[in-house]
Design a protein around this nucleic acid. Sequence first.
DNA 1: ATACAAGTACTCTACTTCGAGTAATCGATC
DNA 2: GATCGATTACTCGAAGTAGAGTACTTGTAT
Lengths: 229, 229
Amino acid sequence: MARRRVSNPLALAVLSCLIERPMHPYEISTTLRERGKEHSIKLNYGSLYSVVESLQKHGLITAQETTRAGRRPERTVYAITDSGRAEFEDWLSELLSTPVREYTSLEAGLSLIGGLPPDVVADLLDTRVEKLRAEVGTVEGMLAGAREQGVPDLFLIESVFRVRMLRAEEEFVTQLSRDIRSSALPGTKAWGRVHQLIAAGTSFEEISADPLRYLGEEGRVLLPPEQPN
Amino acid sequence: MARRRVSNPLALAVLSCLIERPMHPYEISTTLRERGKEHSIKLNYGSLYSVVESLQKHGLITAQETTRAGRRPERTVYAITDSGRAEFEDWLSELLSTPVREYTSLEAGLSLIGGLPPDVVADLLDTRVEKLRAEVGTVEGMLAGAREQGVPDLFLIESVFRVRMLRAEEEFVTQLSRDIRSSALPGTKAWGRVHQLIAAGTSFEEISADPLRYLGEEGRVLLPPEQPN
DNA sequence: ATACAAGTACTCTACTTCGAGTAATCGATC
DNA sequence: GATCGATTACTCGAAGTAGAGTACTTGTAT
């Protein structure tokens, strides 16, 4: 996030519009919306205007003219510069060629599941599966609609990709929920035991002070500082 | 991102530590590191201290004591409150049960691929596949190591999930690159043609003013405002 | 004729995030 | 006993982000 002079991907979308022709910020936002880019790049007004300003400051775009239609607020039309065009190509190349570590909320949740009892977690995961299915349905509906309108797949790949990733997540979560319920996931027994003890009034500190006593051999994992994954 | 009083997932990790016992911020950071949580939750000092302050401000944790060992900087030890415990459970439940829209950099890139010529894009995607494979190798190495040390899968699910998602992405990108090279992806021909014209000196504005002339029937897609996906 | 919703085009501010920088201590080495 | 690097424990400021708010215009229904 640091290397790029302007790091918000919205800036890349702005550059992509200005490559076609000069526009004013509001026009950029409606263009992006029309083309459905807002489904793959987060777009909000606050960011848009500061991103445009920042692009200008760094010489990637220039203000062309400031017009005023009637008593409407001013509109500043921006054009891309050569340096902006270069940045666009370089940045887009990087996005496509180089995976970046994205911290998803599910990963965060999974890394802390020990904090809730196993049966509760399994229920929560089942709820997620339902929502994921609904989401897949929505995106596939959009895709079907767009294809019917004659939009070629080239303009739809982001959504095809999205469906693929949602499906992969759905499969994983389905299986995980099953493995928790059946205790096929190693560690589940001790995990459930800890939460039973807590519910019965034993404090976590007591348990972790002598896990072997409370949990038997399975408690051994609480003893050393766990190995990092 | 707005509903939660403190929205950074790091705050959830902080709460999870303080459920075990009171700690000072630096100790929290080393604990998280030891347990490998930093691989699934972004951890940096700047955020840590402001997140802790914010948690305190909202009554989710309280400062217990301020000690000073020698002439070292002060350490403030924090403890979780009942309200903090409730927030932890509620938040974690939400993370597990409710998918949130995450805008990945690849989606952003894919939605703008039109900006680079097809053959270049295919090469970039191949590069990505290599890097994804390397990444999968690294994470699987970590997993194997941890399992050898006796860490049960319960503490490794985030990484198992991560590998699954990386694999899904790899498969998609591999296939996409192939479909672009073979023009099996609908729209690829016109896309390549546009870039040939641009390389030959035709401006994008000229082409989009009369796409049928420059691209034939395939150019029709440039005519109407494309249907949103 | 008028009221009201929808669209146009931003502005403002409070908040969050990043990561480099700092400053003290400890242990090991030459 | 002086120096060096690692560890401990934060601080700071610049930058980015969210999204509610504003103020005008246009179209539509009553």
